[in-house]
C-alpha cells in the first residue's frame, strides 16, 4: 500500500479510537454541564472549547463521531448486503430477469439522493414502532442511507460477475460440474471481492457526508444523540461569536472523509485490477 494509504489507514484508526474512547481521553463526560465555562474557546482545560452549556466540545465531537461512524458503517453494511445479493442474482442469472432488474435499478438511480434519504428516514421513523424510541431515529437513518446506497453496488457487482463469467477459470469450474449458487458463492464472489471491498471503503465517507447534510438541515440525527452534522449545525447558528463551535465538528468531518478517501483510493490501486495503470 502507498504512503498515502498508510497515512489514511492510520488516521482512520485514530479517529475510531477517539470515537470509542473520547470521554476518557478528554477527562470530561460528553454531557457534563459546567455553565461557568460556557462558550469558552479552546484552552488547555477544554482542547476544543466548550458549548453553550459548558460541555466539553472535544468530548462532544468524540461522542458525535461515535454516532456518525456507526450510522455510516451500518448503512454501508446495509447497502453492500442488498447491492451484492441483487447484483449477483442479476448478473449471474442474466437474460430477461437481468434486463428487468437493471431497469428497476435505473429507476431508483434517477431518484435524488437527499430527497429520498429524508423521506425514508421519516417513514422508517414512523413505521419502526417496535424499536425503543431512543434508537428509532438512528436505525431509520441507517436503513434510509443504506437503501439509497445499494444501487451503485448492485451495478458494480453485476458488471464484475458478467466479466468473471467469461473467464477461463469459471469455464474450468463449470467443466468439473460446479453450478448455481455454489459457483456464485464459492468461486465467483471471492474472486471479485477486491473491487467490492474498495467500494465498501469508499461508501463510508459518502455516508458520513450524507448523514451530516441531512442532520445539518435538521432532519437527521435527533437529540439526545448528536453527530458531527448536528454539532456543525448548532455551531453554524453561533459562528459569528463562537467560530470554534463549527470549526471543530467541521474539521472532524473533513479529516475523516479525507482519511477514508486516501485509504480507499490506495486500496483501489492495489485491489482493483481494472484501475491498475
Amino acid at each position: 500500500m502507498s504512503a498515502g494509504g498508510w497515512a489514511g489507514a492510520l488516521l482512520v484508526a485514530g479517529l475510531v479510537a477517539l470515537a470509542l474512547a473520547g470521554d476518557d481521553v478528554s477527562g470530561y463526560r460528553f454531557d457534563a454541564q459546567d455553565t461557568e465555562h460556557a462558550l469558552e474557546g479552546p484552552s488547555a482545560a477544554h482542547w476544543m472549547g466548550a458549548d453553550a452549556l459548558g460541555r466539553d466540545l472535544f468530548a462532544r465531537v468524540a461522542e458525535g463521531g461515535r454516532v456518525s461512524l456507526l450510522v455510516a458503517i451500518g448503512s454501508t453494511a446495509v447497502a453492500m448486503l442488498i447491492g451484492i445479493v441483487y447484483g449477483a442474482v442479476s448478473g449471474y442469472v442474466g437474460g430477461r430477469l437481468d434486463g428487468w432488474m437493471m431497469r428497476a435499478v435505473d429507476a431508483v438511480y434517477s431518484l435524488p439522493d437527499v430527497l429520498v434519504i429524508v423521506l425514508l428516514t421519516e417513514v422508517f421513523h414512523g413505521v419502526l414502532d417496535a424499536v425503543p424510541d431512543l434508537y428509532r431515529r438512528l436505525l431509520a437513518l441507517v436503513l434510509a442511507l443504506g437503501l439509497v446506497g445499494w444501487v451503485s453496488v448492485a451495478r458494480l457487482v453485476r458488471g464484475l460477475i458478467l466479466q468473471a463469467r467469461e473467464e477461463a477459470w469459471v469455464e474450468a469450474a463449470r467443466a468439473v460440474g460446479v453450478r448455481g449458487p455454489r459457483m456464485l458463492l464459492r468461486h465467483i464472489l471471492p474472486n471479485v471481492s477486491g473491487p467490492i471491498l474498495v467500494t465498501a471503503t469508499l461508501r463510508v465517507p459518502s455516508a458520513i457526508l450524507a448523514e451530516s447534510i441531512v442532520s445539518f438541515i435538521g432532519l437527521g440525527i435527533q437529540p439526545p444523540f448528536s453527530s458531527w452534522g448536528v454539532l456543525a449545525s448548532d455551531g453554524f447558528a453561533a459562528m459569528r461569536s463562537y467560530p470554534h463551535l463549527i470549526l471543530f465538528p467541521g474539521l472532524a468531518i473533513l479529516v475523516s472523509l479525507f482519511a477514508l478517501h486516501l485509504l480507499g483510493e490506495s486500496l483501489r490501486e492495489r485491489l482493483d485490477p481494472r484501475q491498475r495503470s
Binding site: 447558528a237 453561533a238 459569528r240 461569536s241
Partner: peptide, 8 residues
C-alpha cells in the same frame, strides 16, 4: 438575533 449572539 440568534440566542448565542446576544451577548456580543
Amino acid at each position: 438575533l440568534p440566542a448565542l449572539e446576544i451577548r456580543r
